[in-house]
């Protein structure tokens, strides 16, 4: 196996981080939906907090993406 092939395999493996991110985002949005269903008046506050939470969860995938670009 050449070094180049190993780099491509590593690049593929970094994408695995998106598994966890997808699960986290789904859980977060689902829970927010539940909360809005229970208390529809709090929708505005919950929605903005959810957006911030989603962006924070996304960070893990973004770290993987940065690693993806750094691998060369």
């Amino acid at each position: 196996m050449t070094v180049e092939a190993a780099i491509y395999i590593a690049k593929g493996l970094t994408i695995l981080a998106m598994f966890g991110t997808a699960i986290g985002q789904g859980y977060l949005i689902g829970k927010t939906m539940e909360a809005i269903g229970r208390n529809p008046e709090a929708e505005g506050m919950l929605f903005s907090k959810m957006i911030i939470g989603v962006a924070m969860t996304e960070t893990t995938a973004i770290f993987a993406l940065v690693a993806f670009f750094i691998l060369k």
Binding site: A55, M56, E58, T59, I62, F63, L65, V66, F69
Partner: peptide, 12 residues
């Protein structure tokens, strides 16, 4: 984490 989050999102 603060710097990589912003950079990663915009660059990606």
């Amino acid at each position: 984490s603060l710097s990589l989050r912003l950079f990663g999102n915009m660059f990606a």
